[in-house]
Measured scan of single mutants.
Amino acid sequence: KYSDMIVAAIQAEKNRAGSSRQSIQKYIKSHYKVGENADSQIKLSIKRLVTTGVLKQTKGVGASGSFRLA
C-alpha cells in the first residue's frame, strides 16, 4: 500500500523539516517494486494522508513541498 510506503520513507529519512515528494519517490522506487504509475499514485496518496491528518505539510502547497508525520 502506497500510504504505508510513504510513512516508511518519511520515518527512514528522519529529517526535522520533513521529506520532499521527490525524496519520498526516490526511497519508494529503491526499496519497493512499484509499477510505472508510481509517481502519480504517490502524489495522490500524499494528498490523502494530509487530508486525513496522518501527514503534516511543512512547506509548499498540494503534493509539492515537504511533509512529516503528524
Score class of each variant (00 low, 15 high):
residue 37 N to M: 05
residue 8 A to E: 10
residue 43 K to I: 14
residue 50 V to E: 03
residue 60 G to F: 05
residue 44 L to F: 07
residue 18 G to S: 04
residue 13 E to V: 07
residue 35 G to D: 10
residue 35 G to W: 04
residue 69 L to V: 07
residue 70 A to D: 04
residue 61 V to A: 12
residue 64 S to H: 13
residue 30 S to F: 07
residue 19 S to Q: 03
residue 30 S to W: 04
residue 37 N to I: 05
residue 51 T to Q: 14
residue 62 G to R: 06
residue 20 S to I: 03
residue 43 K to D: 15
residue 51 T to V: 13
residue 45 S to M: 14
residue 4 D to P: 06
residue 48 R to W: 15
residue 24 I to W: 02
residue 50 V to P: 00
residue 58 T to E: 09
residue 69 L to R: 02
residue 24 I to R: 01
residue 58 T to A: 07
residue 40 S to A: 13
residue 19 S to E: 02
residue 30 S to H: 08
residue 17 A to W: 14
residue 23 S to A: 11
residue 28 I to V: 15
residue 9 A to V: 02
residue 44 L to K: 14
residue 9 A to S: 03
residue 19 S to H: 04
residue 10 I to D: 00
residue 51 T to S: 11
residue 63 A to F: 10
residue 28 I to W: 15
residue 11 Q to T: 10
residue 24 I to Y: 00
residue 51 T to N: 12
residue 58 T to K: 05
residue 68 R to K: 11
residue 2 Y to V: 05
residue 11 Q to V: 11
residue 10 I to H: 02
residue 56 K to Q: 10
residue 40 S to M: 14
residue 53 G to E: 02
residue 17 A to E: 10
residue 2 Y to H: 02
residue 68 R to W: 11
residue 16 R to L: 10
residue 10 I to E: 00
residue 18 G to D: 04
residue 11 Q to S: 09
residue 33 K to F: 07
residue 48 R to K: 10
residue 58 T to S: 09
residue 66 S to N: 12
residue 33 K to R: 09
residue 19 S to I: 11
residue 50 V to S: 02
residue 13 E to Y: 08
residue 30 S to I: 09
residue 66 S to T: 13
residue 9 A to E: 00
residue 16 R to M: 10
residue 68 R to M: 14
residue 48 R to D: 07
residue 8 A to S: 06
residue 43 K to H: 10
residue 55 L to A: 01
residue 48 R to M: 13
residue 22 Q to K: 09
residue 18 G to A: 04
residue 58 T to H: 07
residue 38 A to R: 02
residue 1 K to T: 13
residue 20 S to V: 03
residue 61 V to P: 12
residue 44 L to Y: 08
residue 49 L to T: 00
residue 29 K to W: 05
residue 28 I to G: 01
residue 7 V to R: 05
residue 26 K to W: 15
residue 69 L to H: 03
residue 42 I to M: 02
residue 67 F to Y: 14
residue 11 Q to K: 13
residue 54 V to P: 00
residue 44 L to H: 08
residue 30 S to D: 11
residue 64 S to V: 08
residue 35 G to E: 06
residue 3 S to K: 10
residue 3 S to G: 09
residue 29 K to P: 01
residue 22 Q to R: 09
residue 36 E to K: 15
residue 54 V to H: 04
residue 50 V to H: 00
residue 15 N to R: 08
residue 29 K to I: 08
residue 19 S to V: 11
residue 64 S to T: 13
residue 42 I to Q: 01
residue 38 A to Y: 06
residue 38 A to Q: 04
residue 6 I to A: 02
residue 53 G to P: 01
residue 17 A to P: 03
residue 64 S to Q: 12
residue 40 S to K: 15
residue 20 S to G: 04
residue 41 Q to K: 15
residue 64 S to E: 15
residue 64 S to D: 13
residue 18 G to M: 06
residue 52 T to M: 14
residue 64 S to I: 09
residue 56 K to I: 15
residue 8 A to P: 00
residue 47 K to A: 12
residue 19 S to G: 03
residue 11 Q to A: 11
residue 21 R to S: 10
residue 37 N to P: 02
residue 69 L to D: 02
residue 29 K to Q: 07
residue 57 Q to P: 07
residue 61 V to S: 12
residue 59 K to A: 08
residue 46 I to M: 04
residue 8 A to Q: 07
residue 58 T to Y: 10
residue 36 E to P: 14
residue 20 S to D: 06
